[in-house]
């Protein structure tokens, strides 16, 4: 197990190098030019050449890459060309909002999705099953921006204490505060603001988890060892929850891990609609402005977090199914 973790961490190195090259290539080869985006409408070709030289974009691409990668190795992701601030600072300051939103959304999806999926599987081909399917499909067939706008228009506009946009406080910190000082104001503020964004992301999450749990559980319930368990005279509940669900959760955990990771950089549309100050918006704004250092550093950082989350997911297989060995 320990050896496996070490090996996976070593495998991270080529992935990160690969990502850094791919991202660097993409931003430099795709059309779009940071200097053009920065220059005002009045700029002359001389201005262009001058700024290109100042920011070092007149050098060959491989030279730019090596310089950037060398600095990145020492922990220096460079300075944003549009905002003038260090990239690592910009990204780290956005991560709490992003991770919190991803976490709460996934939590919402899991809390609602797994029970719904289990019930649907047990009550297979009954109205309950059908109902759970329709709910799930509604979730997955509506684009995020549409769910968000519907929530805003039909709920937030009529319920005074639900805000339209922005982030009030930190839910994690609020929870800590509630536990340590019995002060719930920060938590209340945090929850108020995170509610709608989390619901609009969580809906799709829930849909996927519900469907996957149901099918996976049905699949597992047909397996030999379940039949053995039944034959041993174990109660149906024990069979479903102890033997069935545990094995059925394997693909569910996989998807949850992927979704959690994808949400770090991918909840952009929801972040935009709710004006949520997350990292996804930072990176996509940077893409639009061709702020290369932020795009490069941001994607690299996201990739790092993402691979770590997925390493944890892979490790959790062993807990869910002890027969899986890491060799």
């Amino acid at each position: 197990m320990f050896k496996y973790i070490i090996r996976r961490i070593l495998q991270l190195i080529p992935v990160i190098i690969g990502i850094s090259i791919v991202v660097f290539m993409i931003v430099h080869l795709a059309p779009g030019d940071p200097i053009l985006m920065m220059l005002g409408e009045d700029a002359t070709p001389e201005d262009y050449a001058r700024l290109q030289r100042i920011y070092g974009f007149d050098r060959p691409v491989h030279e730019q890459y090596l310089r950037w990668a060398g600095n990145a190795l020492q922990g220096d992701l460079g300075v944003s060309i549009r905002q003038g601030a260090p990239v690592s600072y910009l990204i780290v300051s956005r991560l709490p909002a992003t991770i919190e939103l991803a976490f709460i959304s996934v939590l919402l999806g899991v809390i609602l999705g797994i029970p719904l999926g289990v019930i649907a599987a047990i009550k297979r081909e009954t109205p309950i099953d059908f109902f759970s399917m329709v709910v799930a499909l509604l979730g997955v067939s509506m684009p995020g921006f549409w769910i968000a706008l519907v929530l805003l228009t039909y709920i937030a506009l009529h319920v005074g204490w639900i805000p339209m946009f922005g982030r009030g406080g930190s839910v994690f910190y609020g929870l800590w505060q509630l536990i340590t000082t019995f002060d719930g104001t920060e938590l209340y503020d945090g929850l108020r603001y995170i509610m709608l964004p989390a619901v609009s992301i969580g809906t799709a999450m829930m849909a996927i988890i519900t469907r996957l749990t149901r099918s996976s559980l049905l699949e597992v319930m047909g397996k030999d060892y379940i039949r053995t368990a039944r034959a041993k005279g174990l109660g149906e509940r024990v069979v479903v929850f102890k033997h069935g669900l545990r094995n059925a959760l394997l693909p569910v955990v996989t998807i949850v891990g992927i979704q959690f990771g994808a949400m770090l950089g991918g909840a952009v549309i929801t972040e935009t609609v709710f004006a949520w100050p997350g990292a996804g918006r930072l990176i996509v704004n940077a893409i639009q402005q061709r702020d290369f250092p932020i795009v490069q550093g941001g994607v690299l950082m996201m990739a790092l977090i993402f691979t770590i989350v997925n390493l944890l997911v892979d490790l959790s297989y062993a807990i869910l199914n002890p027969r899986i060995r890491y060799d």
Binding site: L152, A156, P163, M164, F165, G166, T272, A275
Partner: peptide, 15 residues
């Protein structure tokens, strides 16, 4: 306050 989405901005104003 920066609110990029036009519909959200309007809703926030109305609220």
């Amino acid at each position: 306050r920066a609110i990029p989405e036009g519909s959200t901005r309007l809703l926030a104003f109305e609220a």
